[in-house]
């Protein structure tokens, strides 16, 4: 276990150092893309914490939206620094996760039911934001009051600052992923994903394990949402909440591979790069095309390679013989 941890950490350190060199070499545009990939990769990684144990949430748009809206709202209306606003947003998302998660897990709402309940949740978060249009700006979105370069307001017009933040946060997300993957809860969660009743019978505290991973996932997602709104200096309910975003998160995590540490990030690479490439090569008229392609690819991925791109590469390489091949996604 110790060796495994060291090996994983080593790989991560090397990757981080390499990525840290990126700002020295590239343009603002490339940095802009890289920041988005890292931040969304972080969010997708947060989702996969639940997804890989069969807890398929279609409600992460709600957590993302809460995180994204909390700090700009508190900043604009109460003058509260994002250093406090972001934690408040994270706590709010965790509270919501608790309100939804607790009854679902206590009453064994699983599979289809869980997905549909959380799906409704994400749409309700969107509607709430739209309904509170007097303070949130409704579907037009809102902008945090800009103060220029400021640590207090967590606003940096210069890209390298945010790149560093995004990189640090992303590394944090990957660390959490590994922590969950080799932690004590892993076996319990695997058992739950396999057969909840059987897991409970052998003494697994199903409720506690599920809630823990759900709260962690919701918290990280809200954190990602907060950083996305700080970076863009603009929040909009359609891009940061609702079913569309929820499905985009699920798509990216699955396409990249939710059973691999870097899978969700690979999904981020794809979901950010694809629309950019389409925009550059085909112009803005082709605006719906990226989503059309996502949708079609999501279907194709689920049918032909449910373990995602990175999962496929890993199993092809199968380089480390010690690593057991983890099971197919369980319902």
């Amino acid at each position: 276990m110790k060796n495994e941890l060291a090996r994983r950490l080593g790989a991560l350190v090397v990757a981080t150092l390499l990525l840290a060199l990126v700002p020295l070499a590239t343009s603002d545009y490339a940095l802009h893309i890289a920041i988005q990939i890292l931040l969304w990769g972080f969010v997708y990684t947060a989702w996969s914490l639940m997804g890989k144990f069969g807890l398929v949430s279609l409600g992460h748009g709600a957590f993302l939206g809460i995180g994204a809206y909390a700090s700009p709202l508190l900043w604009n209306y109460a003058g509260l620094t994002p250093w406090l606003g972001i934690p408040i947003g994270i706590l709010a998302a965790m509270l919501l996760a608790l309100i939804i998660g607790y009854p679902c897990f206590r009453l064994r709402v699983v599979g289809h039911y869980f997905a549909l309940v959380t799906l409704a949740l994400s749409q309700v978060a969107l509607l709430t934001i739209v309904a509170a249009r007097d303070i949130t700006g409704g579907s037009l979105g809102m902008t945090p009051k800009a103060v220029g370069h400021s640590w207090y307001a967590l606003q940096f017009p210069e890209k390298p600052y945010f790149y560093a933040i995004a990189l640090a946060v992303w590394v944090f997300g990957i660390l959490i992923w590994h922590f969950v993957d080799i932690g004590k809860g892993r076996a319990a969660l695997d058992a739950i994903a396999e057969d909840e009743g059987a897991a409970a019978a052998i003494g697994v505290d199903v409720m506690r394990e599920k809630l823990r991973v759900t709260l962690a996932s919701a918290a990280l997602t809200a954190f990602g949402g907060a950083l996305l709104s700080q970076y863009f200096m603009y929040v909009n309910p359609d891009t940061l909440s609702g079913i569309g975003v929820s499905l985009q998160i699920v798509f990216a995590a699955i396409a990249g591979g939710m059973y691999s540490a870097l899978g969700p990030t690979a999904g981020g690479l794809f979901t950010i790069a694809l629309p950019e490439i389409l925009r550059v090569t085909m112009g803005t008229n082709f605006v719906g095309a990226a989503n059309t392609i996502y949708g079609a690819l999501l279907v194709i991925f689920i049918i032909f390679m449910p373990r995602g791109v990175i999962g496929l590469i890993e199993s092809r390489l199968a380089a480390a013989p010690a690593r057991k091949i983890s099971k197919e996604p369980a319902a």
């Binding site: 279609l58 289809h112 690819l297 369980a330």
Partner: peptide, 20 residues
């Protein structure tokens, strides 16, 4: 395959039809 995969595949169709 797992029921949740079927649900997600139709979720992909939602995306696809909407954007199409």
């Amino acid at each position: 395959s797992a029921p949740i995969n079927q649900l997600l595949a139709t979720g992909g169709m939602l995306f696809f039809l909407q954007s199409l």
